[in-house]
Design a protein around this nucleic acid. Structure first.
Lengths: 220, 220
DNA sequence: CATATAAATATACACTGTTTATTTAATAAT
DNA sequence: ATTATTAAATAAACAGTGTATATTTATATG
């Protein structure tokens, strides 16, 4: 076998083809089964060839994570498109439903981001945090609009301690955003991770009801 | 080297020593780095020897998970000991604080249970669910007591759909328990998994304030 | 046409979980 | 006391992994 194939047999856009193949295998076998050698096999190349495009496995995983966050942020943005700007409850609900819908549609991507399925992988926060931020920023935006309209209900009987390095964003808005996100994340990760107890029959109905309760709690 | 050591050199309680060594290495290197061979090395035995006690790696992981759940349930139970039976808010708060305290004290155990750090591992739910249940049952118990005392605030403006296979436990209690658990789990898993955005300075203060807000929302 | 570069391969190393056959210490039976 | 049995470990090997190094060759450049 020749050490380098003719140009006709070369794979164009190998950089993206590797990512695409990785997603294919993650969807089929789960994120934990990610293997450079398996990707190489499917592409008809050898494993070290991947190192031309990604310095190591972790770099590939990071690229996948950024990819997933981008996909997630797109879903979030799309969810707001069908809503009217002043229907704060509707927009909040839409974001919440889109959050779960994306996770259910792509459970492996969800686990890749929020679980820790890759052995020994530690995310470089300077790369993944900005990508993650984009998803959260829409929620903050919607809540900030509700706050500006005076529709954000004061949540706590006691004053909020100074826990934020806020720049222009109201701490109450940040607190509402983070708590809502944690809530929703907890429900979705329990559903995707099959952690719910058997007494819960329908996780989706449960989720919708919880979301309805939440919007009523957070908005006037 | 002889194929079997003399009795004096044999390791007693190897079954438990394996678990203990596994926890040691998980604490040092993270759950993802779990390795049968590394455990064997540290114990001065060969890797296949472990197979006398655990049929495969997944069985060992399952034993570790059950172990972790047991430890967690013990912390939850201990948290209630310093409280008085009718101080429902205090008891709820104690459970919530204990939840986070356990996770912060044993982040690897937490990730092992709720993350998915072991490549290719799928938990046998018939074994892990009952163990997980024990932790949740205390929360349900506390909320049921509050409900019996008429101190559980009705949460939603709309009626709760029938999503539970409840046996003797009020659906409102179950709903409150599950939502509270999801909320707390979301916050803790975001903290442990370093998913919080940098604007949040102090995750512990944030958690305490959220918990305080929650108890006020859930209890009268 | 000669040279330099880029992109792949081949090979090898140190790991991993797991299977098989083998060896031996301890125990039970005669 | 000797023999047979059983239990618990080892040794060796297999297929898989990520990754480093050296090599080869197709292509682009002077």
């Amino acid at each position: 076998m020749s050490p380098r194939p003719h140009r006709e047999r070369q794979i164009p856009n190998l950089h993206e083809r590797i990512l695409h193949t990785a997603w294919q295998q993650i969807a089929a076998e789960g994120a934990a089964a990610l293997s450079l050698r398996a990707i190489a096999r499917q592409l008809g190349i050898t494993a070290p060839a991947i190192y031309r495009y990604y310095p190591d496995r972790d770099a590939l995983v990071t690229a996948l994570i950024v990819d997933a966050f981008t996909s997630f942020a797109a879903w979030q943005a799309a969810a707001l498109e069908g809503t009217t700007p002043h229907d704060h409850a509707g927009r909040l609900c839409a974001l919440g439903l889109a959050y779960r819908a994306w996770a259910v549609a792509h459970p492996e991507r969800y686990q890749l981001i929020f679980g820790t399925p890759i052995a020994g992988y530690h995310a470089p926060l300077e790369i993944t945090m900005p990508a993650a931020q984009r998803g959260l920023s829409l929620l903050i935006q919607v809540l900030a609009q509700a706050h500006a309209a005076g529709k954000l209900r004061p949540l706590s009987p006691v004053p909020l301690p100074a826990v934020f390095d806020a720049e222009g964003v109201d701490p109450q808005v940040l607190f509402a955003a983070l708590t809502l996100w944690c809530y929703v994340h907890g429900m979705v990760s329990n559903e995707i991770g099959r952690q719910y107890p058997p007494v819960l029959r329908d996780a989706e109905v449960f989720y919708r009801h919880a979301l309805q309760t939440l919007t009523a709690q957070y908005l006037l």
